[in-house]
Computed example of a mutant assay.
Amino acid sequence: MTGHLKDFLKFLELNRNASAHTVRAYDSDLTQFLGHAATEAGLEARELEPAHLGRAALRSFLGALHKQGLTRASAARKLAAVRTFLRYLRREGVIEDDPGALVATPKRDVRMPAHLSEDEMSVLLDNLAGDHFSLVGFQTQIKWGDQARVLRLIPGLEQAEFVRFGMVHRNTYVNGPTVLAETWQVRKRPTLFFAGQMSGVEGYVESAASGLLDGLNAAALATGEPASAPPRTTAIGALAYYVSHADPAHYEPSNITFGIMQPLEQAPKSKKQRNEALSARALSELAAWQATRAARGLQIC
């Protein structure tokens, strides 16, 4: 089974354009899973057979993670890695069924939302004149004590007092694959469009691009023309396809990445050359899509 793992990691690197960090994370999680499955079967990891990777092995693995004190979020991440590996094995014909589909994802811990205390709110309201400064977009998981230490390294902030520290927030978004088409239209109500963070898009450029596409398609509908999406080989077209076709059970917001673009039929081995080839193809096919719209008398972006 270790050979299949090596092939899978190579698949992630070459076909999914995964970063070295992502590949290492998959390697770590899957090595842990295979090691657990081997221990349960009384075997070495290299001796594992597909039959040892069933639902029971997955449930046992999750149980072991729980005993180790891992958070539900961490366990869910490891389970997602295992599921991706098992789906790969099924596509390659190594296993017949996908046991990962039969195991429920651990529910995330429900935490109370962070909020200002009454004293903190009073301070803010009493100081609207301007002696408080806010770092826009300061999202971080750095511990508060470390944030204070790092920020006080900035010249002029050595004696700064902090009313509130940075933290990570999660956006509210619809489950795109269940409700949205590639044109960001609601499938059951085509005159209604979603865009940006609400649709599961990350990033300012991506949000603006999806909104621009919505505007173009709304204008097309107003003139009796059908809505259309750029090809999946383009950046915004790939994101539109992801938003409308990702796995609904594991849908997460995404930026535009080379990894969600339609793979090249003959991809260069060099990552730089692959990305350059993907970019060149995207520009060419976006221009062709724009020309098609222009020929129909529609606006182009």
Rank of each mutant, 00 (worst) to 15 (best):
T2I: 10
T2F: 05
T2W: 06
K6M: 07
F11T: 10
N15F: 01
S28T: 14
T31S: 14
H36P: 00
T39M: 07
L43H: 11
E44P: 01
E44H: 14
R46H: 12
P50W: 07
P50I: 10
A51Y: 00
R55T: 15
A57N: 08
G63E: 15
H66C: 04
G69D: 08
R77W: 03
F85T: 04
F85A: 11
E92P: 00
I95K: 08
D97L: 08
P99T: 13
P99H: 11
A101M: 01
A104I: 02
T105N: 12
K107I: 09
V110Y: 04
V110Q: 14
S117D: 06
E120M: 07
L128P: 00
H132C: 08
F133R: 15
I142C: 03
W144G: 04
V150C: 06
L151N: 02
L151G: 04
E161Q: 13
R170S: 09
Y173D: 02
N175A: 05
L180H: 10
V186P: 06
T191I: 00
L192E: 01
A195C: 15
G196L: 04
Q197P: 01
G200T: 10
G200E: 06
E202P: 01
E206M: 05
E206F: 01
L212C: 07
G215A: 11
A218R: 10
A218H: 04
A220L: 02
L221F: 01
E225V: 00
E225L: 12
S228Q: 09
T234L: 02
V243W: 11
V243K: 04
H245D: 10
A246L: 05
A249F: 04
H250A: 14
Y251R: 09
E252C: 05
E252H: 09
S254C: 06
S254T: 14
G259R: 11
I260H: 03
Q262W: 06
R274G: 06
S279D: 06
S279F: 05
A280R: 13
R281T: 03
S284W: 01
E285A: 02
R293C: 03
A294N: 04
G297V: 02
I300G: 15
C301V: 10
